[in-house]
């Protein structure tokens, strides 16, 4: 009986682990858990070379 109980605990524990992980991932991604709120790091740093490249696009040869 004890073994059965522990087996069931293991099954429930496994499912719980899956659910908690599934719930945690979106919260980290959206910044709720990390405390960043809406300030998501989406800004891509434009380097000097890249800016020059875009400017150069308009230059007529």
């Amino acid at each position: 009986m004890r073994n059965v109980l522990w087996t069931i605990f293991a099954i429930v524990g496994g499912i719980m682990g899956f659910l908690m992980g599934y719930a945690t991932a979106p919260m980290i991604e959206s910044g709720v858990l990390t405390g960043q709120g809406a300030k998501r790091a989406t800004k891509i740093e434009a380097g000097k070379e890249l800016e020059q490249f875009y400017k150069d696009l308009y230059k007529e040869r």
Partner: peptide, 10 residues
């Protein structure tokens, strides 16, 4: 509560 909220965000 934590798990429900996580899925709502998702």
């Amino acid at each position: 509560m934590y798990a429900s909220q996580g899925l709502r965000v998702k």
